[in-house]
Design a protein around this nucleic acid. Structure first.
Lengths: 340, 340
DNA sequence: CTGAAAGCGCTAACAC
DNA sequence: GTGTTAGCGCTTTCAG
């Protein structure tokens, strides 16, 4: 004879047992079961035992949808990031995931592909789940997105960038400063004929901000970018390789090139190795991110190591710490490597 | 005078307007608003107009929690992966995210850290949201996890591995074959004194399976692994570098080394470059994954390119295609590179 | 084409 | 300690 579970299943596939099934089987009321399950209030050992058995027997899994509706509080946290191809965001997400998990929250993620309008849509979609909090990348959003973020009644963490006005929690570092630091390194080493290789700046605001900091410093020294090559796609090693080739074809006399990130820079490095262009004597290069590959290579790349995982973790922690609106600068580390 | 929105906010912060607020403002019934919003059934243009205005005015965001409870069907899809540090999983997630998004679903993610028990907990947590589907990595799960997956009444996609028994949708490729292919390449090139460098095999079942395929082929040729170095941490470039150093110290006469993946192999490559160990004349090396870095380097790494993004995408698509239980082998591509 | 009413499964007062 | 009773905000028959 089929067990109770099988009966239900076969009668109505996809339907799982409910609190009242458990209550009936255990011979107690629904509220008692609810209490036992959430270990709230008190209950006798005997009752607890019986409830646990019933739960076990039925394979009961509490329905959080109902629970959330009744208690008006979900454990969902929306996370909206621009991409998953750039290692920065998986790292960020990993840190956030760890912290959220520890605090009993579950991340619902959305990938905007660097599209502000998609970000807007995704934020709205997250909000529809009445999340306990929201994590987004950066401070640049459409007016509507900002309005939603502000008016949602949930805490918001904006991560990875601190150059701008935040809504609630802001954790990251200054991309502007990172760009400046790179330019200063180039200048200190005596490079003057400087070029830039980057990826779509209209969309990657953080990369754009680094470039701004970079050129700012050049300007202070009476210099300017000699040439630049900006591609209209996501960053990648392949793209960096080709872009540097084009840049050097157009401006063969450059003595240093700043890349929008390490992916692009490693591509550039490969180009030089293959073309026999000596680094840094003939050409200096510098990236951004501090990828393992860049730091551990025989000739380590000059780069900037960012604490993105910690940003994700701290961002998620502060989201629920109950503290005031704040900005946390986690800084970055300049790595001189051997390519400047 | 404060607007309606502000009034509500100030009275009860965090509370947002509801369907009935909209209905009242538009002067229609709740069911009408519901219909208009879901464009189901018909409604006069005039009513639609009025409802839209009310929605706009109130900044109304439908509560999916309530909607899901009422209609018993969420648009949430649980995704449980072992890690985010290994690029394979962000890629997989990116593909899945794309397909889910297109079909109107939202991924809730969980990272198990390669811990089967955490995976079990995460699956249970996802199930509590009554997701429309579930995506997990691989075919190796605890008995309880399998039972939940089977009994949940939702479709399940198990991705990245096809060597084993699946529950519903299985999309991936054979890690066993990948290991075999690697061994065959080594043997074809005449290497005989072969070693292995890997990362925790008890937990990464796919890496373990590749090694099994690899040694299987060696055995067929009357050979065996000469030496191996397996670390008890996640794979990384740094770990690969150090592990190869140890392996070669213990077994200096190896002529080829198989790595558990490209991260480890790139580390090995760096070790050789720094130690002046000629590749492949003195030592051949091979990895797995087909990372950009490995393929685009001046001396491309021998590796196996896996279609992990497509796996994620197709897996997510099939989840809702309504097809029968099935296994899809997306294969892999052997890249000979220049290190064997 | 629109409204009324009955839940979805659970939590949270409030009684007992 | 435990049971009863209202909802949470929405969808969905079923009338009108």
């Amino acid at each position: 004879m089929p067990s109770i579970i099988q009966k239900r299943r076969s009668a109505k596939p996809g339907t799982s047992s409910t609190l009242s099934d458990v209550a009936r089987l255990a011979g107690v009321s629904e509220s008692t079961v609810s209490r036992v399950l959430r270990q709230k209030g008190f209950s006798s050992l005997k009752v607890r035992q019986r409830v646990r058995e019933a739960v076990e027997h039925l394979g009961y899994v509490p329905n959080r949808v109902a629970g959330t509706l009744a208690s008006s509080g979900s454990n969902l946290v929306g996370v909206v990031i621009p991409s998953l191809s750039n290692i920065v965001f998986p790292d960020l997400l990993g840190g956030a995931s760890l912290a959220l998990d520890r605090a009993g929250f579950q991340p619902v993620i959305g990938v905007s592909d660097y599209d502000p309008l998609r970000e807007e849509t995704l934020v709205a979609a997250m909000l529809a789940w009445r999340p306990a909090g929201l994590i987004v990348a950066g401070l640049d959003h459409t007016a509507r997105t900002k309005a939603m973020l502000r008016g949602a009644g949930v805490r918001v963490a904006e991560l990875l960038d601190i150059d701008g006005e935040g809504i609630d929690i802001v954790v990251g570092f200054s991309n502007l400063s990172a760009g400046r630091a790179s330019a200063e390194l180039f200048l200190a080493r005596g490079y003057r004929r400087i070029g830039y290789v980057g990826h779509y700046l209209g969309l990657d605001h953080r990369a754009a901000r680094r470039l701004r900091g970079f050129t700012e410093i050049l300007t202070h020294s009476g210099l300017a970018l000699r040439a630049s090559e900006v591609i209209a796609e996501p960053s990648s090693i392949g793209a960096g390789k080709e872009a540097l080739a084009r840049l050097l074809a157009a401006a063969p006399d450059l003595d240093a090139v700043y890349f929008s990130n390490d992916d692009m820079a490693v591509g550039g490095l490969f180009h030089c190795l293959q073309q026999g262009i000596e680094i840094p004597s003939r050409l200096a290069i510098m990236g951004y991110n501090g990828l393992d590959i860049a730091r551990l290579a025989p000739q380590p790349l000059a780069t900037i190591l960012t604490p993105r995982r910690r940003v994700g973790q701290l961002g998620a922690e502060l989201l629920f710490a109950g503290g005031p609106k704040q900005v946390v600068d986690l800084g970055f580390e300049l790595i001189e490597g051997a390519t400047v």
